[in-house]
Design a protein around this nucleic acid. Structure first.
Lengths: 128, 128
DNA sequence: ACGAAAACGAAAATGATTGTCAAAACACCC
DNA sequence: GGGTGTTTTGACAATCATTTTCGTTTTCGT
């Protein structure tokens, strides 16, 4: 195929969806499209993509890792639908500042934070 | 004791530590103290305690669930040390408001959020 | 085209968490 | 004290996402 091959296929599969998807999920989708890709490779591609900061990762409540290709390369957070897992990128300068201040105030160094907002999106709410 | 003995044992083990601990971890600690408790029971106790809101749960980056007995019953977040997992409870009214607003602005309903701050605490920083 | 190095994929291994199920602890009544 | 039904418990097996392992195939530089 084309360039750094299979990784591209995974990235495209992610680009094609608006929300977060699990590795197993992406694997199934790719196989369904006829790709002969292996599960191992999907995991490796996702690992590489998240290491290089090209995609975002988070953990669902039941411990499964889910991934998403994001529009902006800069720091941001997500508003995720519990039902269809569609995600909207949001920013909150105040939150960044607050987190940094809290860390400093308690003598912590190398402070980072994780913020996710969950809810049911409009369409899914109406459908219920 | 009305509220089962085993659950109490787990709660006390949690109370005794300042940070987040994993189920496996607590199980090992209890066994080390001579308790004949089973792993299954530890999980059941933690489940029950978190269901009733008596303890907080979060997932580490590698997907393991960790628990903590918190001082306040009200909504709050944590500043957690990456090294020793000691946790400080913090509040951020501004963050709560921001999360709610974001959800509303995008037509989401039943909005909740998860916020955790990570860093290396003073003592652990110095030790490095 | 040729060999080293990197990428692949199938199957086995890992490790946390959950399900099963029979035994033990308990409650309540006689 | 003895019955009897309910709840809790824990050893062990089952699940399931994620990792490892390890040949095999591709990619690349020359």
């Amino acid at each position: 195929m084309s360039t750094t091959t299979r990784r591209e296929a995974v990235r495209q599969a992610l680009d094609a969806s608006a929300g977060f998807r699990s590795a197993q999920d992406l694997y199934a989708a790719l196989r369904a499209e006829g790709s002969k890709i292996g599960l191992t490779t999907v995991y490796r591609a996702l690992q590489a993509l998240s290491d290089s900061g090209e995609i975002d990762v988070l953990r669902t409540d039941d411990g499964e890792a889910v991934y998403r290709a994001c529009g902006s390369e800069s720091h941001h957070h997500h508003l995720v639908c519990r039902v269809c897992s569609t995600a909207v990128e949001v920013e909150g300068p105040a939150v960044e500042r607050w987190a940094a201040e809290m860390g400093e105030a308690h003598g912590f160094t190398g402070v980072t934070h994780s913020v996710e907002i969950f809810g049911t999106c409009g369409p899914c709410s109406r459908r219920a």
